[in-house]
């Protein structure tokens, strides 16, 4: 599919900042600065590849979203539609950060190699 961006550790912050500046600039240009950018951040803890809390994360189009992942085992995650990937080390953390520009419901699934379908770890809903 489309190009994949891998965001891990400190690199994410740099990209996140760059994105938020871009989004802010874009919203200034489009809406004359009327639309305030809401930042929605989520802390998600995974145990055995399953979330301990919410199954569905809800944000609104235009929000700046930060997903902070924690996992008991190493896991590679893929947010479909936005095509973002991140690898969480065992007992470690990783962050996905992006502007929710595309409305819809998107699965975040465990990324494994080879064919086959995998049940989503959780879902992101971007409301219009």
């Amino acid at each position: 599919m489309a190009t994949t961006t891998t965001i891990t550790g400190s690199a994410s912050r740099a990209i996140a900042i760059r994105r938020s500046v871009l989004v802010a600039a874009a919203s200034l240009a489009l809406a004359g600065g009327a639309a305030a950018q809401a930042e929605k951040s989520f802390d998600i803890a995974l145990a055995g590849g399953k979330p301990l809390g919410e199954q569905t994360l809800r944000v609104t189009k235009g929000d700046k979203v930060v997903l902070r992942w924690k996992s008991d085992r190493p896991i590679a995650l893929h947010l479909h539609g936005y095509d973002l990937e991140t690898s969480v080390p065992a007992q470690g953390t990783a962050t996905m950060s992006f502007a929710a520009s595309l409305p819809g419901r998107f699965p975040i699934s465990e990324h494994t190699h080879g064919p086959g379908h995998h049940r989503a770890v959780l879902y992101l809903e971007v409301l219009p």
Partner: peptide, 17 residues
């Protein structure tokens, strides 16, 4: 695994009503 082909393709689901 409903329409894995069909839906897996799009990578995006419709928001529920």
């Amino acid at each position: 695994m409903a329409s894995a082909a069909a839906h897996g393709f799009g990578q995006r689901f419709d928001l529920p009503l």
